[in-house]
Design a protein around this nucleic acid. Structure first.
Length: 822
DNA sequence: CAGTGAGCGAGCTTCCGCTTGACTT
């Protein structure tokens, strides 16, 4: 029997470490926390110094039993949980749950899973740091008090099942406030002056005025002054520049890049990363640290030398940006840089490549660039001759960029969220000061200011991290909680067409054009529900302290003081609770009716009765008139996607009552057009047919409704390979991914050795039954995730040369916080 | 999948952070 029992948090880690230690060591995992506050309301004894009661979590009883048994048989127990606040608490809870009072217990810590780090840690054991444990208890108790005292107020005053908490309520607030900011936003138009010059041999030069002109008249004026003007190079400036690689991934930056580059949801990124971690391909994926072990840096340098040559190596240690970071782990990196293919699974491999490239690039040389700025003077000779006036014209500026040494760009280019149109940055043609330029055309293009972007899952995580709210292990759960509670929905929204004007000066003639662009289209963005706005306003009013964006940062300072032994945890909590609980009581005392959940929109033009919008159990709806004995069921209609309680106006509200409506008859049965939460539909004979994007449910006529039904039937018939007269529930169909059998609502893939045309009814049923059996034992499938995208502004007629995606990314790659190796 | 919204009242919901599987659908 082993003399030493080592306990870590993660089983994958246990496996690795066991390999580093000798036969005398057995390494086991606690699977995270083993004890927690019970779910009831008596977990904390408020009268007696907030003394907590802990119980062993149900799903940890077996783990604790096993560890207890092993501990009894061991001489020394090494508590090797993570080197942070939660890890220290886990060690203490293990100490308590395993009843280790009379045992030889040693607490060890390490921040990288390397043999040398583990062996060193064994040489330097310490005892449990009770100050640090107390700071965790304070954190835990504060969160419980906040969550379990405010949530019931929401149940009573607003709706059952709602929740509030230090983290989630602020996350919702961020989304609500952004949405209101967007609603208030009024785009301002201005005109961008762009000039295209023909330089020698088919080469062109594009330049822009550094300031936009305010309106159409000013744009016209500008172009008129340029009629018959001369253009020449006023100044040329060539400057060297450099770009540095980004730090290796933390959880948050991995989630952001996987969202941008692979269109993964935050949860999907974590599931895939977990798989890679369990397979030993990457280091731990829940980390806030950007630092790498010296050993890893050395190995990365070896790989870079081997693959790209020594001059591409530039090792560095990155300093973590975030103040709240606890850095118990390394940054996310491959465990072996020589492994290029880590998995057969496509998504695992794609995420692995991202991690590999980012980690390798972080140890590579800066890219060396050369930036050229050409200033072009406009001499309005034509205008001077015509009018005798000499207007001052602004300079035009052309920018070019050439990569002299690619360095880390050879491997990895970080992408960014903002998509501000960057200037086209390629190489400029050869130019000389004083050189006269031949104008091809000068344009003034109208553009509009844009509102701040709506949050994606990943950009919300970024925002939370910057505010120090939430931890790497909770980013994905936060996103899912605020959606589960009905505060936030992740949705696509179509954009709107908007026209804009272009003025073109070519061959001394000014032409005026109109073009249109689609603006405001959203993909996989987070939208607040009406309930979120209601709850948020309530919380902001009555719990301003908790809802303050710096609340977490403020209490973190106090937790730090507790960890340093400078502050008593129960006093800190008592101090907080005094004010907090008073607010709970105040808010519990208010009348339900005082919380605004109704708004009058105006009077119905037909009947003259008031129409109001009400926030109900399933979201907001519009109602004509009041409920009374004469009018027990006033007309009601739900708001549609994109409509909000706060902003809906009377005309839109009246529209809602026009659906569902009769759309004529077909095959002797009525057709009804309506809108459900899945979009507009035609219902006929109990079946639903979706409208296309081009169809308008309010104006759709009988013939179009019939053709929708017929089109669908035709498409279904084209898919049909085989059907059976004896059992109409069973069909053999051709799907997007090949032929399959449909039995009722269940779809079954056809094995390769069977020909779909020759399947008999019996075979189909047998396959269905077989699938029914295996389904129950098979692993749950990863959900398919829709591509995440950003606010898109696609210009239809604009044809300025766009740089390649890679270059655009490169141009906007942010400098990173780096610290020279000490 | 495709629509809901009364009122009564019992009994329930809820936090954040640390870890993975074992469960259905």
């Amino acid at each position: 029997m082993a003399k030493n029992l080592v306990i870590v948090e993660s089983p994958a880690k246990a496996k690795t470490i066991e390999g580093y230690l000798g036969q005398d060591f057995i390494v086991k995992s606690s699977f995270g926390h083993v004890r927690d506050l019970p779910k009831n309301n008596h977990a904390i004894d408020i009268e007696n110094g907030f003394r907590p009661t802990y119980i062993i979590s149900d799903d940890k009883k077996r783990v604790v039993d096993e560890l207890k048994k092993l501990a009894a048989q061991s001489q020394t127990i090494w508590l090797a949980t993570d080197d942070d606040r939660e890890g220290e608490a886990i060690s203490w809870h293990l100490h308590e749950a395993l009843q280790l009072d009379n045992k030889d217990v040693k607490r060890i810590v390490f921040r990288e899973i390397t043999k040398s780090a583990i062996l060193k840690a064994i040489q330097q054991p310490r005892t449990i740091d009770y100050d640090l444990v107390n700071s965790q208890q304070a954190r835990r108790i504060l969160d419980r008090l906040v969550g379990f005292e405010i949530s019931p107020v929401l149940w009573k005053k607003i709706k059952g099942g709602l929740s509030a908490g230090r983290v989630q309520s602020v996350a919702v607030r961020i989304i609500v406030e952004r949405e209101r900011e967007i609603e208030k936003f009024v785009p301002v138009s201005s005109f961008k002056i762009g000039a295209l010059f023909d330089v020698e041999k088919g080469k062109t030069l594009y330049a822009e005025a550094s300031q936009k002109v305010v309106d159409f008249v000013a744009a016209q004026d500008f172009l008129e002054k340029c009629m018959g003007a001369n253009y020449f190079i006023h100044n040329l400036e060539v400057k060297p520049a450099k770009k540095s690689p980004a730090a290796p991934f933390t959880t948050s930056t991995l989630q952001q890049e996987a969202s941008r580059k692979l269109s993964f949801s935050v949860a999907q990124t974590m599931t895939v990363a977990q798989k890679l971690y369990e397979a030993g391909k990457i280091t731990y994926m829940r980390t806030d640290s950007t630092s790498l072990s010296q050993e890893a840096i050395g190995k990365a340098a070896d790989t870079i030398t081997k693959n790209y040559g020594e001059k591409y190596v530039q090792t560095r240690q990155y300093k973590t940006k975030s103040e709240s970071a606890q850095e118990a782990h390394e940054a996310i990196r491959p465990t072996d840089f020589n492994t290029q293919v880590a998995s057969q699974d496509r998504n695992e491999q794609r995420l692995y490549e991202l991690i590999w490239k980012r980690a390798i690039a972080s140890q590579m040389a800066d890219a060396q660039l050369e930036r050229t700025i050409a200033t072009i003077k406009i001499d309005p000779v034509g205008y001077k001759r015509q009018t005798g006036q000499d207007p001052q014209m602004p300079f035009l500026v052309a920018r070019g960029e050439v990569i002299k040494f690619d360095g880390f760009l050879k491997v990895y280019i970080e992408s960014t969220d903002d998509e501000e149109d960057e200037d086209t940055k390629g190489m400029l043609p050869p130019l000389q000061i004083g050189q006269l330029l031949h104008l091809n055309q000068l344009t003034a293009t109208e553009s509009f200011t844009r509102h701040a972007p709506r949050y994606t899952e990943a950009s919300l995580v970024k925002q939370l991290e910057e505010m120090g709210i939430g931890r790497p292990s909770t980013y994905a759960p936060i996103i899912s909680t605020i959606q589960k509670r009905g505060y936030v929905v992740k949705e696509d929204r179509p954009g709107k067409e908007r026209t804009y004007q272009i003025l073109v000066l070519k061959n001394d003639v000014i032409q005026q054009k109109k073009a249109s662009e689609n603006v405001g289209a959203e993909k996989a963005k987070l939208f607040p529900t009406d309930m979120a706005c209601l709850v948020n306003d309530f919380l902001v009013e009555y719990f301003a302290q908790i809802m303050d964006f710096s609340f977490t940062a403020d209490v973190e300072k106090e937790f730090d003081a507790i960890a340093q032994g400078k502050q008593d945890w129960s006093k800190m909590i008592a101090n907080f609770y005094k004010g907090f609980h008073q607010h709970v009581e105040e808010s519990a005392g208010i009348e339900r009716q005082q919380i605004a959940r109704e708004r009058v929109l105006g009077d119905d033009p037909v009947s003259g009765v008031p129409i109001k919008v009400i926030i109900g159990r399933f979201g907001a709806y519009v109602q004509i008139g009041e409920v009374s004995d004469d009018n027990p069921k006033p007309p009601r209609a739900s708001l549609q996607k994109g409509q909000k309680f706060e902003t809906i106006q009377l005309p839109e509200a009246l529209q809602l009552f026009k659906l569902p409506r009769n759309a004529g008859n077909f095959e002797g049965k009525e057709m009804v057009v309506g809108i459900s939460k899945f979009g507009p539909y035609v219902r006929h004979d109990g079946k639903y047919y979706s409208l296309t994007k081009e169809d308008d449910p309010y104006t759709l006529d009988e013939s179009r409704a019939i053709s929708l039904i017929e089109e669908r039937r035709k498409a279904d018939a084209a898919k049909l390979i085989k059907s059976f007269a004896e059992n109409t529930e069973v069909q053999v169909l051709n799907g997007r991914y090949g032929p399959y059998i449909k039995v009722g609502k269940q779809n079954i893939k056809i094995p390769k050795d069977k020909k779909p045309e020759e399947l008999t009814l019996e075979e189909c049923l047998a396959l269905a039954e077989e699938k029914g059996k295996t389904e129950t034992t098979a692993a749950p499938k990863a959900k398919t995730v829709k591509p995440t995208a950003k606010t898109s502004t696609t210009k239809k007629t604009k044809s300025t040369t766009k740089e390649t995606k890679a270059k655009k990314d490169a141009a906007s790659a942010k400098p990173t916080n780096k610290k020279p190796k000490s």
